[in-house]
Every structure is written in structure tokens, then in C-alpha cells.
Computed example of a mutant assay.
Amino acid sequence: MQAPKFAASRSFHQELKRRTNAYFEEAGKSTTGGKRLLFKACLLTAAFVAVYLHLVFWTPSALLGVAECALLGFIGAAIGFNVMHDGAHGSFSKRKWINQFAAFTLNVMGGNSFMWNMKHNLIHHMYTNVEGVDDDLDAQPWLRLSPEQPRRKLHRFQHLYFWFFYALLFIAWIFYMDYQKYFRGKIGEMPIKKMTASDQGVFWGFKVLHLGLFVALPIYTTGFVAWLVGFLVFMAVAGFTLSIVFQLAHTVEHTSFVVPHETTRKIEDEWAIHQIKTTANFATDNKIISWLVGGLNFQVEHHLFPNISHVHYPALNKIIRQMCAEFGVEYNEYPKMRYAVASHVAHLRELGREAASAMEAPTAKLTRRGRLFRMFE
């Protein structure tokens, strides 16, 4: 597949980078996470290890065990948001080996940092919400996430059952999707670069390590049934938490879904404006949510500056908003997380209807959204 091309003009992006660089120079700050992020990483990692050890070697009662497995899944997702994500983007630390160490937390959890870099950093961040290219939109046949995807009868109810498939994300990711990418040599229809011997060793070595830590050892210490229940709870909570945070960033009512020109493969907007149109923020004033999700509620800032740590996103938010106001670019943001969830549900509901319903008047759409918002208030 020929990769899409963005508009040649980069005036918006160039001015945005100039203002952002000026901010860091004037503030005398590094673009990486610093001690604040290191402390958070140590806290989350210590919590994960403590809960894991208690579950595996001290075997709590059934009810407490299920609760701890759910907590383990949530902490694991938080490590993904805060530690792995910044590390994979090279923004956790100035030192490359520390970034690699942070990124490798994904390998310990059962994923693969090489595949994540290909899928997330290189494809998703470059071609966000571009149909046929951004693999994050591909949940077929179970879910229809963009208007260009075929509609099936079951999609009529996807706004009701989506949570089930979101809960399956992590277990499908580590036991199926990584291997699919490995053996196909593609992510969707986009080829991935050839893996080196080191990449191969990391892929298979950590897959075996994960099976040992999260399958073999717990079965040995707790028994098969207890492990199976706990493992499924752990995976479901981690999968749903990861899914919902990332989906609120791109698959909501106000974000754009782009189809490149059929022959030229060109996209109308320059890259930076494309990122703003295809991305949305949520609950940026909520410090607890911001802390837990690693600043990924500032998704616009992250997509424009993925190599800058999330600890700086509140400051960048002001710069980008001002730029959008000056250039007449719509900035998508939901003031509360529940509003973003409501918009995601409304988006799924709309896509689950007949294709003709997409042509309904905007006032009708606003009325439906208003009803959904009231449901979450």
C-alpha cells in the first residue's frame, strides 16, 4: 500500500514548534519527564509487584483475590499509560537506555515493544484516523469504528456490547495480534521493517517470560481454576481500561475520519492540523484522571508533540489552544470524562445504524447527544 501524503504547507506546525521551543527555553525546562515521572514510575511498579507477589505467593481468599486481580489490571494499565508510553516515545528520560527500560515494561506484561513502535509510534501517530492505514480503527467484524467501514447487522447493537470486546483487547493483543503481525510482516496492509536478531530474541524471550510469570507460576502456586479466574479478571480490567482511554481520544463524534484521495493518496490538511481534527481531549482539569492516565486525556498535545513527556501537556495545552484560535482550527475537548464516554457511545450508535442515517440533520444529532450527556450527569 502506498502511504498517504499530507498537504505541503506546514505554516501552522512550524509556528507551533517555534512557540513550544520558546516556552521550554524561557522556562528552562527539559522536555522529558524528570524526577516527577521517575517517582510515579517507581510507585506504580512497586504497587504492581506487591499485588502480584501477594496474589501468587500468599494466595488471598477468593473474594479478595478477585479484587486484587482487578487492581492488578488497573495498575498494569496505569504503568502502560505512564511508564511504557513515555518510554516508547523517548520522552521518559534524556538517557536512551532508561527510555528503553521503561518501554520494556510492555514486554514483561506480554506485549512487544517492537510491534508497538511500528503500530503506534510510526503508523497511528502519523496517519491518525486515516481509513485503511490506522490499524487502531480496525476492530472488524465486531465493531464499526469509522464511517468508511462496512456495516453489518450486529453493529446495530455495538453501542451496547462494545465494552465486552474492549475487555478482550489485552488478551487478544498478547496472545494473537502480536503473533499475527510477526508472521504476516504487516500491520494491517502496511509492511513493517525487518526484525533484527536482537528484536527476534526480545520478542520470543519476553513472550516465554510472560508465560512463566503470569501463567505457569500462578498455576503452580494457586491451582488452575484460581489462576484462570484471576487471570481473566486481570486481563479484562487492563484491556477495558486501555481501550476506553485510547478510544475517547479518536473515536468520538467531533473527530474527523479521513480517506486519502483514491489516486494521488493525498490528504487535504497539513499533518499538524490533521492531528487536531482527528483527536480529542477530555477532563483536562481533573488532576486525578490526568495522573492516572499519564496525561493521555491531553491527547491533542500528545499527538502534536509525542516526544515531549506528558508532565508538560497542561502548559502546551494553552499554547495550542491559542494557536488554534488564531488559525481558525477547531479544538476538540470534552470538559468531563463522562461527556467523552457519552460521545463515544453516541458515535458507535450512529455508525451502527443504516448508512442513510449518517445524513440526518445536525440538530437531530445534537438532540441525541444531549440525551446521552444527561444520562451521564
Rank of each mutant, 00 (worst) to 15 (best):
L296C: 04
L211K: 13
I219N: 00
G212K: 12
T251N: 14
T196R: 02
T263R: 14
T278V: 05
L228G: 08
A236H: 06
F203Y: 03
D285A: 10
T264D: 15
T241M: 09
S290H: 11
T222F: 02
A216V: 15
G205N: 04
S198R: 08
V237T: 06
A272K: 07
L228T: 07
I273N: 10
E262G: 15
G295T: 08
N286I: 00
R265L: 14
H261R: 15
F203D: 03
L242P: 05
G212T: 12
G205L: 03
V233I: 05
G205E: 04
G201D: 10
G239K: 00
V293I: 11
K207Y: 09
I289C: 06
I219W: 00
G223H: 00
S256Y: 13
W271V: 00
L248Q: 03
F206R: 04
F206Y: 05
D285H: 07
H274T: 02
F224D: 13
F282W: 06
P260F: 00
V215N: 06
E262T: 07
H261C: 13
H274R: 08
A238P: 15
A216F: 11
L232G: 05
H261M: 11
T241H: 09
L232A: 10
N281F: 01
F234Y: 02
T264F: 11
Q247G: 03
T251H: 07
V293T: 06
K287S: 12
A197R: 09
G295Y: 00
N281Q: 11
T196D: 13
F257C: 08
V259D: 07
F234D: 01
T222S: 14
G294R: 05
A272W: 00
Q275D: 08
V229W: 02
A249Y: 02
A249E: 04
G295M: 03
H250A: 03
N286K: 04
F231K: 02
A238V: 12
T251G: 05
G212N: 07
L228V: 02
K207I: 08
F231P: 09
D199M: 01
E301L: 03
T196Y: 04
V202G: 11
V202P: 15
V233E: 05
V300A: 03
F282R: 02
G212P: 13
E268A: 12
H254G: 15
L209M: 12
E270M: 05
L296N: 01
A283L: 06
I267A: 14
A226P: 08
I276M: 08
T263F: 07
L292N: 10
F240D: 04
G201C: 09
L232S: 11
L211D: 11
A197V: 12
T278S: 10
A280M: 05
L228H: 07
L211P: 15
V293F: 01
V215T: 14
I276P: 06
H261Q: 12
T222Y: 01
K207R: 15
S290C: 10
V293R: 02
G223I: 00
G230R: 01
H210R: 09
V208I: 14
T241A: 13
V252W: 07
A249Q: 07
V237F: 02
Q299Y: 01
W291C: 10
F282M: 04
F234E: 00
V237N: 05
V233C: 14
G201F: 01
W204Q: 11
K287M: 10
L228E: 06
F257M: 04
E262S: 14
A238Q: 14
V293A: 02
V229L: 10
G295N: 03
